[in-house]
Design a binder for these strands. Structure first.
Lengths: 237, 237
DNA sequence: TTCACTTACTGGACTAGTCCAACAAAAGAA
DNA sequence: TTCTTTTGTTGGACTAGTCCAGTAAGTGAA
């Protein structure tokens, strides 16, 4: 009876259209799954599947049990220009905020020890921070510092740029970094902090930093909401 | 009555375990959704949702209407060491194959003209290729070459490394490249070539290449199956 | 004003099915 | 052998619901 074979394509097209014509604005809430299912005469499962697919595309995002929202434009993130998160965001006419979540000191667990190429048990600090763009939590960052290189760092303001702190307080310059970009799902504590749901995708970025003496001094794990970012790199050979 | 609150967590854990203990091997088929739903006493919808979540994690992948399979380990892909796809794959003890899909010549459509920073209508060649690792199609590549820089290129073997061809036949060296990495969903023709399903995630990589005279000579759009790859970059400052 | 409590609403998890399109392997025909 | 046809199996799309857990806003007591 229907004109279209797949009804859920309909809802996708209409939402896509409303977003591109700015009838639905960034950060704005989309009607609830139940409302949409009535509007389009579909079950919630079909609606959910359509929304899922727009989520993968990066057009909309989900907050756990709060609803679906329109994604703002992606931030262009150049990881090679290190550290100045707030600068980068304001350069793109957006508003950044950093929240210090947690600081722990411990002996490096095996996964981190491997990343830092540690051959024996070594004390580290782990600094967990949450970063917001335009009031939306989009990035969970975990910095793992080898304690011996950073005496007394925990008494500093840790919501500022760590790279700048490294330079000012310890005279470290970043001579070399190694990056891995992995599309995967986020661990539990990250899911929670970003208000996501277990099994949702994130863009995981692991970086290992070397100082001017070519020592590994720290590593960082970034977990981005995948619709919020686009990694942009310039390479001169 | 059940011990666990969420039954679908069960199936996820068991599959994860079987994969990590290599009882299920890379490229091997997972039992069908119907079989799993009987085994775990769940509906197909619940099974599908659990599989989805393992897919996002990068542990398993889907071939459209063929079934679910175990993902091989991710390839480490360093886009800064340009061009030698086959080399890179065999360095990682894997088997590469390139299939030439399609070659077209046309005036650059607006999206590509923007990427190539063209100010007036310009003829280009588009070369579409499909790349396999261990027999699995994981990467769709679309090269857009500005025709004037590459006279007579269409008579060459286009399944080889284009970078090498640029160097040998035209004396071009790659002086600079610009990359964008975007987690998003793939366009229709890519979905089809990779045997995926509309709405599935890919890692899209756009690169723009400059020759030694600092002219943009071509751009490339890569679409990776997201479980197949991990982008790895080394940066020296 | 402030804080605890209730309540409506949201998405998450799930059941028990149906029908369809594409794939793949087996069976037949040339 | 080689090509075509059939048939079973796969995932994709969908219906029509139920129950649950966390959010947010409004209500009322201190």
């Amino acid at each position: 009876m229907d004109i279209t074979k797949k009804n859920s394509q309909n809802i996708k097209e209409i939402l896509r259209d409303q977003i591109s014509r700015q009838l639905l604005l960034p950060l704005q809430k989309i009607p609830s799954e139940r409302e949409l299912s009535e509007l389009f005469s579909l079950t919630r499962i079909s609606v959910k599947s359509a929304l899922h697919s727009l989520e993968v595309e990066g057009l909309i995002y989900r907050e756990n049990r709060r609803g679906w929202f329109v994604s703002p434009p992606r931030i262009e993130y150049n990881p090679l220009s290190r550290g100045h998160f707030h600068q980068m965001i304001s350069d793109q006419q957006r508003v950044a905020k950093t929240l210090l979540l947690n600081v722990k000191s411990m002996v490096a667990p095996s996964a981190i020890a491997t990343t830092l190429k540690l051959s024996k048990p070594t004390p580290i600090h782990i600094i967990e921070r949450l970063r917001y763009i335009d009031g939306r939590a989009v990035l969970f960052v975990e910095n793992c510092l080898i304690s011996q290189y950073f005496p007394d760092i925990l008494s500093e303001d840790l919501s500022q740029s760590l790279t700048e702190l490294y330079a000012k307080k310890y005279g470290f310059r970043n001579s070399c970094s190694h990056f891995d970009f992995i599309p995967t799902s986020a661990p539990e504590h990250v899911i929670h902090a970003l208000n996501m749901h277990p099994g949702q995708q994130v863009l995981k970025i692991c970086r290992v930093n070397y100082n001017q003496h070519n020592n590994i001094i720290d590593c960082e794990f970034e977990y981005w909401r995948p619709d919020a970012v686009m990694v942009s790199i310039n390479n001169r050979e």
